[in-house]
Design a protein around this nucleic acid. Structure first.
Lengths: 230, 230, 230, 230
DNA sequence: CATGAATGAGGGTTCATTCAT
DNA sequence: CATGAATGAACCCTCATTCAT
């Protein structure tokens, strides 16, 4: 198994092969369970060559994270074209996101599962990428508010929290779609848009769901599903 | 550190001590980095006894997952009392969830981070628990629809997706709250309720955000935040 | 080969076996060329046990140095009994030294060759032992001066230099005796006594060999072998 | 750093550059810790060329030993000019020896430390050179005896031992001088001459320090510093 | 049951050494 | 000859796991 053993390739090519193998192995086995032996074999090279090019397991993992993070951000940015209205941009950004994570499940596992579980150094690496996406979504939300000519009193802090929640929900859905068979990209994106867009609209309109007092006891709460809307 | 070394305890108690130590070690060090030596020492027990009671590292980890999963589900179920209206049930269920994950960060790390990153066997174990919670939320959504006397055309698949998204968002928020200092349980729950409830209400009212055709091309869509309502 | 594989020995015994094997291997192969595998096999144990008891190759080497250094100093001290006159004490100290180094050639190689060639940490370890012996010899020289009622103007600094030279010569002779077949302990000791004792006496009497001017050119120097004596 | 990269040099020159780099690296890092990569880089040469010219690490090391040994012997021989009386010849030989070792510390480290600590093959190489120097010193001692017209009963074996001791002491002093700052060549040579010359003179005059019987027991020996003379 | 003794198996890392270009 | 690509063979170290007492 593994790539066909072709000899004497230029360094750049070999490095990509190694990163391919590493992402796959790290994504499936996990960072610690992945052995450099397995990665080297899967890449069709000897272990010393992996070390010659990528120095150490940590560096190799970091290189994987960087490559996958860059690719993911690029995919999302390429998906959401700036000319469109905000909701359409969000839609196509989500579509691109789900498409990319579905096409690169190991890369996504490396970013979302492995990198966050094995040391702050790696976690920081993905946190940087995530922050970029969150910022992107934040701008989208603000743009949507401008589009709707409604900018009542949404403090920047709250917008950031909403973007966090949206991104978090998207990440969870990506995991779910990757694990559950038969879920299409459009379904995931549509679910999330439906789930989130109205909530955003309500918030911007100043309508909120008010939590009850802390330990309410038996009271006749009459809040229904339609209550926040009206 | 570690439990005080007391002799001759009944097996059930000893096992709980071991699981306590294991959950803590697995949660903090990670599955692979946790050593049986450390767990045994933290439990105040000799290593052979750990093997006598729990067979292997894998079995020990599985036992940890099962115990923590059961506890989490129980906490959520206990939180949401059946008599209340659906949104209040969801609110108290979320509150219970965030409270539990905040009080048992190592258990939560075991379930949400470690179990999903180290082999399908463990992942399946948490998937079962998660399915239980998702089903619980699904029933809540359906009950909410009944409460509102509006059950137009919500296909089961879509409800499942919504429940997934809600649970996923809750999980993300739990992680975020566990990592970010100064975030209270009420804040997390309120953020999520605000974010989600309106979307759910809109969906049940038949209002949805309609995705564009697949490769949209340059079209002059002027949908703003209110557009999905129309 | 190696020790007969006896199982379940108390730790102290096993440790000595390991140190025996380590001293032998380090002495013959050298620190870097010695492999932990070989040492473990020679000791009749598995490699992990060596690590369990002695932590690392460095620690193992340090333990070897300490054990051999302590043994050597003890042997020399035991040899030179305090009641005798200084020259006799020196004689028996030298005899003990040569006897010990001849009986433990690997230990001597560890101390004199390996420890000095592989890192300052190890070198410092033997330097401490050597300083102890040099101090011992220094005291012997001073005692000899007292015995002979001649304490003219021998500055402490010079005595230290002489002790250094004497110890250095003894070390070299030990190497030589270990490498050249047919050299007895008595021969080595006698050679060194004859070589050194008169020089010491002359120095204490204030007689020195005076070096010529720096670049003398062709001059009729008439210093013979007897000149310093007179 | 390293030699300036100049192209197309004759083989002999290239080889010397490699040997220079090798001696320096071996002397500072030690035989095993020195890597062929480092040597090649320091020599300003590609690694395959090193192998083309010098075959292997072992051969390269042997070549270093031979070159440095030859240079050292030549320096000593050149120092001691045959016309002078024996003590002056010894003096100038020692001076040359200390001068050379001080000027080529890496070469000296290779000969005296590295070659003796890494396998019998290398040790034999330096042993041959050392034998040459010892023989040279032996001849000097015999010449001195002739000069003094006193050749009583000096057995060849004993002369050899004396030469060994003298050379060994010189070697120790060279190490000491190389490690201790502020020690001049003249000081080293003077120390050794003072230390040794009287002993030699006494021996040639037939005066020796007589060792006691093997297991002496409690006897009232009152030998002081002057006793061997009597 | 608790303890100390003990190990098989494997993981990360390095290095001398060799070809093809 | 110089260079970059490539590797076989170790080496140090660790850990889950098991017995004998």
């Amino acid at each position: 198994m593994g790539a066909v053993k072709t000899k004497r390739m230029p360094r750049a090519v070999r490095e990509q092969q190694m990163l391919d193998a590493a992402v796959r192995t790290f994504g499936q086995r996990g960072y610690m369970a992945a052995s450099m032996d397995e990665i080297a074999e899967l890449a069709g090279v000897s272990k010393p060559l992996v070390y010659l090019y990528l120095n150490s397991k940590e560096d190799l993992f970091t290189a994987c994270i960087r490559r996958e993070a860059t690719a993911l951000v690029a995919a999302v940015r390429a998906g959401a074209r700036p000319g469109l209205p905000a909701d359409r941009q969000l839609w196509s950004g989500l579509t691109a996101f789900f498409t990319h994570t579905a096409r690169h499940p190991d890369g996504w596992a490396v970013l979302h599962l492995q990198a966050r579980t094995h040391g702050v150094v790696f976690a920081a690496e993905v946190a940087a990428m995530r922050a970029e996406i969150v910022e992107f979504v934040t701008q989208l939300i603000l743009a949507a508010a401008r589009d709707a000519h409604r900018d009542p009193d949404l403090p920047e802090r709250e917008v950031a929290g909403l973007a966090e929640a949206l991104v978090g929900a998207a990440e969870s859905l990506a995991d779910w779609a990757n694990t559950t068979p038969g879920v299409t990209v459009r379904q995931s994106a549509a679910t999330l848009m439906n789930f989130a867009w109205a909530g955003l609209g309500d918030l911007m309109a100043g309508r909120r769901w008010t939590p009850p007092d802390d330990e309410p006891g038996p009271e006749t709460a009459q809040s229904g599903l339609t209550s926040p809307v009206t």
